[in-house]
Design a binder for these strands. Sequence first.
DNA 1: CGAAAAATCTTGACATTGTCAAGTTAGATG
DNA 2: CATCTAACTTGACAATGTCAAGATTTTTCG
Lengths: 204, 204
Amino acid sequence: MAKSSYHHGDLKNALIQAGLAVLAEDGAAGLSLRKVASRAGVSHSAPYAHFTDKQALIAAISTEGFRRLQAALDAANAAAGSDPAERLVEVAWAYARFALENRDWFKVMFSGLLENQHDYPDFVAISHENFARFEQQVSEYQQAGVVRPGPPDVTALSVWSLVHGFVSLLLEQQISSAILDRVAVKDLLRETLNHITLVDLGRV
Amino acid sequence: MAKSSYHHGDLKNALIQAGLAVLAEDGAAGLSLRKVASRAGVSHSAPYAHFTDKQALIAAISTEGFRRLQAALDAANAAAGSDPAERLVEVAWAYARFALENRDWFKVMFSGLLENQHDYPDFVAISHENFARFEQQVSEYQQAGVVRPGPPDVTALSVWSLVHGFVSLLLEQQISSAILDRVAVKDLLRETLNHITLVDLGRV
DNA sequence: CGAAAAATCTTGACATTGTCAAGTTAGATG
DNA sequence: CATCTAACTTGACAATGTCAAGATTTTTCG
């Protein structure tokens, strides 16, 4: 773990971290392998010892993103109260917060930047696990009568679609300012969820 | 309109069309100005007489995409029967079809490829009009008792979020094959919409 | 322990790309 | 017809992804 000047020690992870820094600074469009390498303190070709190409780095960043997102959702779920409806709102809000606080990271995960997901088993695994957990949670809301009955996977997909669509449109600046000027984002998310729940989520 | 070898005549539109061809062939990642220029039969710098930079071409392609999407939704709305619930399904399905049949075009429109939307008035205008029309339609479904009451704009946003999220996750290959192997995409969309409607949309 | 092998990293090169500057051509204007 | 301007070409540059060849360190193993 020493800085032996030549061998880095843990360059692979350093490159992922550097990638996140570049993403936060220059956005997804500014994410270049050379910039990432330079920020990690190595030459422009060094990354090729750990990633077969740029796509592989993107896959690693996306995978790490799913881990972080999952942690955020778990934390929100654990911190939320006992009311199922309110728990749904909190988890959805955690999803939105992750996207808003890590815009370009989220963009890398969900904007088709990764071409052949199938070639990256870690990515496939975490992304499956992600849905499985969400399905588990939604199943609880369903049993609590908060969400309409139906096949758990399709129901989870419906709720995820609503939340993911809302967040996507928000990041894409497709939500009219006429709405955003009137109601705070979290309340807007709440009102949006109101359309898919069987109980009334109320207002602020 | 002649091919005077030097002056093209309508290069601006030719470049947009060439861009669409490149998108369909090489995807969004393969969309390069030089490739577009070459396909339009002009030199690599010719586009700069009509577009200030690559972003401007992307804006034009996105704008044209919103026009096409709007036309598709209008057509579906006109062709649909009188049952409001069924009309909702048809319009949503037209949205999904446009995305599936023009994956990379849709991606250009909704994947943050365009950095400063605000600099492109045509884009802003058509994208506002797009939402206004959708709000109009959803308002009808609402009055017909198909969708839960509430402010028309927030309600339209909710429905749009659901449909857009579903389509996005579909394109991102985030919908588990366990679901896709079981139910056809259109039926899946129908079942998804079922969670946000007040009436039962039924099955196949 | 020491030599061979493997992993890690650097340097140098190449093709592709976005963009700009300078020049060329054609159509419009007077 | 002379001139002006918009449209287009050629040439250049820096940034980028990727590969090949070499240098350096670590690991393996006789």
